[in-house]
């Protein structure tokens, strides 16, 4: 694995009229990482992903993909990218088979065996017209077209949004398979956190166009701790003297606190020193997401 990032954003801001979709974003994506891009609706995920292949150009700042400014990506670089958007537009007059052939004819790399297998796995009939496909089947075809060239950078913007549970399971299995190739970088945005959690090794949390967190998932899990405290005798002190205290909910007898950015043993020691009944455990991924997504821009 090389150290050179596969994509790099420096001070990127994007304005749509007066709306700031991205605000001074600086990031690097290392090769071989599987990044889950998360955030509430309208947080700037699609805008961020659109900048990497040069589909969107920044209002200010620079974006480089494969070491080339994204605005000037040539055939060689674009051929190394696979991209699936939320609502993929496909040539409506073609059949599924013709669409696959059309894309294959223009690609230098193409895994024919994978394409054939995915056609069967996804239940895509090569003779069926694209205009007759349901949104779910259309999404499956778009995924097939994006992964069959075995791209070095695979960008998936809400790829599973219109897939049924069975198709989503197949898709996740496919992702697991693609992950096996170490040099491939995958960026996947999704609202289905349980899916993301299964496949990603790094999490990028974005809200209001700003990056709130970009770190490995395991590291993120160790960053936050949930402390359930119950008073024994006297009421709980207020505020709770816990290190890295971020939020507290409850009353004077029972409370749930979240601490962050301190080692777990420090939190446990502080909880013991309170002389109360305390249980410390790591936060679930969904809880971490909620904590950051509802922080209104505060550093948590």
């Amino acid at each position: 694995m090389t150290d050179r990032p596969i994509a790099r954003l420096r001070g990127v801001s994007k304005l749509y009229g007066t709306t700031r979709a991205l605000d001074d974003v600086s990031l690097e994506f290392a090769p071989g990482t599987i990044v889950g891009v998360l955030g509430p609706n309208g947080s700037g995920k699609t805008t961020l992903l659109g900048h990497l292949p040069g589909l969107l150009l920044p209002t200010s700042g620079t974006v480089e993909t494969f070491g080339v400014p994204a605005a000037r990506l040539g055939d060689a670089e674009l051929a190394r990218i696979g991209y699936v958007s939320q609502e993929p537009r496909l040539p409506e007059w073609m059949t599924v088979g013709e669409t696959v052939e059309f894309v294959r004819a223009g690609r230098t790399r193409w895994d024919a065996a994978l394409a054939t297998r995915l056609l069967a796995d996804f239940g895509l009939d090569p003779g069926r017209g694209v205009d007759a496909l349901s949104p779910g089947l259309r999404q499956r075809l778009a995924i097939l077209i994006a992964v069959a060239p075995r791209p070095d950078l695979l960008i998936l913007d809400e790829p599973a949004a219109s897939l049924d549970p069975v198709a989503r399971h197949d898709f996740l299995r496919l992702l697991m398979e693609l992950i096996q190739e170490e040099e491939r970088t995958i960026l996947i945005s999704s609202h289905v956190l349980s899916d993301v959690e299964k496949v990603v090794d790094t999490v990028l949390l974005i809200n209001g166009g700003q990056v709130h967190c970009h770190q490995p998932l395991d590291e993120l899990r160790e960053t936050y701790h949930r402390v359930d405290v119950t008073a024994v005798g006297a009421d709980l002190p207020s505020p709770l003297p816990l290190p890295g205290l971020l939020t507290v909910t409850g009353d004077r007898r029972r409370a749930m606190a979240v601490c962050g950015h301190v080692p777990r043993h420090q939190v446990e020691a502080a909880a013991r020193a309170l002389g109360v009944e305390a249980k410390v455990r790591g936060l679930e991924f969904e809880e971490i997401y909620r904590l950051i997504a509802t922080s209104d821009g505060r550093k948590v």
């Binding site: 292949p53 674009l78 537009r89 059309f102």
Partner: peptide, 15 residues
């Protein structure tokens, strides 16, 4: 124009 607008076309080398 329809072909250019189709999602995979942007990534087609030589198109």
């Amino acid at each position: 124009k329809e072909l250019i607008a189709a999602a995979p076309s942007y990534f087609q080398p030589g198109l």
